[in-house]
Design a protein around this nucleic acid. Sequence first.
DNA 1: CTCTAATCGAGACGGTACGTCGCGTCTTACG
DNA 2: CGTAAGACGCGACGTACCGTCTCGATTAGAG
Lengths: 202, 202, 202, 202
Amino acid sequence: MGADTPKLCDTVAHSPDPTTPSSPRDARAARSNDALRAAFLALIERKPLEQITVREIAAEAGVHYATFFRHYAAKEALLDDVAAEQIGWLVALTVPVLDQTDRRTAVEALCRYVDEHRTLWTALLRGGAAGAMRDELLRLSRNVAVERAPAESWLSLDLAVACSVSLIFETLAWWLAPAHGPVPIEQVAHTLDRLLLPLHAT
Amino acid sequence: MGADTPKLCDTVAHSPDPTTPSSPRDARAARSNDALRAAFLALIERKPLEQITVREIAAEAGVHYATFFRHYAAKEALLDDVAAEQIGWLVALTVPVLDQTDRRTAVEALCRYVDEHRTLWTALLRGGAAGAMRDELLRLSRNVAVERAPAESWLSLDLAVACSVSLIFETLAWWLAPAHGPVPIEQVAHTLDRLLLPLHAT
Amino acid sequence: MGADTPKLCDTVAHSPDPTTPSSPRDARAARSNDALRAAFLALIERKPLEQITVREIAAEAGVHYATFFRHYAAKEALLDDVAAEQIGWLVALTVPVLDQTDRRTAVEALCRYVDEHRTLWTALLRGGAAGAMRDELLRLSRNVAVERAPAESWLSLDLAVACSVSLIFETLAWWLAPAHGPVPIEQVAHTLDRLLLPLHAT
Amino acid sequence: MGADTPKLCDTVAHSPDPTTPSSPRDARAARSNDALRAAFLALIERKPLEQITVREIAAEAGVHYATFFRHYAAKEALLDDVAAEQIGWLVALTVPVLDQTDRRTAVEALCRYVDEHRTLWTALLRGGAAGAMRDELLRLSRNVAVERAPAESWLSLDLAVACSVSLIFETLAWWLAPAHGPVPIEQVAHTLDRLLLPLHAT
DNA sequence: CTCTAATCGAGACGGTACGTCGCGTCTTACG
DNA sequence: CGTAAGACGCGACGTACCGTCTCGATTAGAG
């Protein structure tokens, strides 16, 4: 995802309150919006993001093509809207992982969070938006990482963040794959913790 | 990248000989082909793959639009053609990394290889084709990994391959970034070796 | 203008009284209506009819878009409403011109009438609605002409009406043009009378 | 037709040779162009210009929608292309009418010309493009009139041109109407000559 | 040193998706 | 009831890029 692509919400401290309905004026608007988001999630499980057309989303949502643009400027914006809050949470949970102290606990919290929204995250990480999600995750993590005082490390900060995000991403994506039997959270957390180990060694 | 996307060369044992001239028929054809490849590499350094149009490539190559299709079925095929050989080599060098024995040596060989084709790999890993390259690298590595007797490990093979490829990919991409001063090969190899450590621990 | 285009009022004997308030129910309605008419007149002086959008009219009138449709089915209907009365009068004054007797007097009356509503007629004849006005004038004139006993003439009635209307229309439009200095009514009447001469010769 | 509308060819002395095919490169292009012109003429006989959509023209021509724009920038441009040459001729024949000498001969020539292209002119003058044609005819006539030394007249030049064009237009349109039996050229010429009489009187 | 066939430039074409605009209808809530 | 506010279905708009396709013109490499 290039520099000129619409970005996911820039704030990690995004209001998690369920009071996001800034303007619940018209019931129809809400219905259309819901339909679009549902349609998008349904499609993203089936094909990569760039192969999904706005027309498909609109058709799947039972909504007129032009109506899509009354809600989102592009399908990337819809992805943002769908994923922004979740991503914000995930990044907030991901950052402490970079710290040495209590990494295991942070990792477990992260896994538990993903598990609680398993369906959505399966769509996001294993569907066609995976690439965009990885990029976005990396971008937000980097933002956060530079703000926090980067602990002295044997690794460049940039590389450390990139590797952390990649390992987390790959592990979660693997976890959410239906190919193997269900893996308990504790095991995933353990695995991830172990994978991240060398990143924080002195 | 989905299942219906054109693939890079499917063989790892792809002939690495410099005798790739599949059709050395006409000198004109060879000239056009070279121009197209050069133009593509020039463009991919500047913008993401999906923003590059066939018309742009042709214009940059000083070649007529339709001529492009006399050489490649799509721009992805051109990417394949440009990257296939390199990718084949890289995978061949990447696979032994999965083995326990002599990982450090393998890692160094890998780094040295990339360093010897620094310009090309910079374009491939940091340009607009990065996503496609990562996917392709992963795919080929997986193919190879399942063929080789997978050493018993505390990690799922799938996850191990995914993490290895990701770490290698991120490290190389970071290495090729112009943001920081030149990093000597030995240091990169050391870093990579250390990052890969937990993947092969008992 | 085709057969399926909204028509100006079909009656020439349209009540010319200033008591057009078809629905003097609500004071607000009247205010909206006035605002719409004024806005329309203001716009038609500036650009052709087909380039004026309902949204523009509503905005210019300081009225909500949907409100427009509570008053008029389309912008053509508004044109009708604005022009119908005037057109009715004009046609009523135009018809006697077709007669041989006392044409000069009729022509003068016609000119005087237009002069008395100079601003409005300038908008109607020289603004973007000119084409529609010409068509409508012709249509109504023809209706009237066939009803009146058509005096025997060397000209086909259809052609005579068309030419009369055209000459009147062109002369008035020229008269109302700001390009040349003010022309006295008598001179215009004289010109028009002379132009119409051959239409009524034996 | 406003000031920002595509104009018909500005030259009256437009090359009347049948060698208009400036670039007969591709036979397909010529075929598409012919189909578009024919489709346009077919449609313009049935409905007003502004009700004809580009999509209709393309469909009628059996040509893809986008192909239309490879030939014309808008449907008005197609009208231009269809009518430009004819209009050029007509104006060239119309201008001498403004002269006093030999007006009758000029009028006859004009009528004969229209008669020779009766089908086309019927479409142009009585179809949906009538308004545009009138405007264009007027515009070109005015251009020509100001260039020629305007004979001293009791009429403003502007008004004289407007009235001449209107009378010619209405007469031709009436002549081409199927409502009445065929009228011989001589009679039309005579009528027109007589109608134009007062315009050139001293 | 031809001559024949591959390759090229030029560009029209059908096709699909894009994003915009204006229309007229509708819902909702207010006064 | 009339209004403001605005979402919605509809459908035309004009654009962009795709990949296919005729056309000659040229030019390389085989005879």
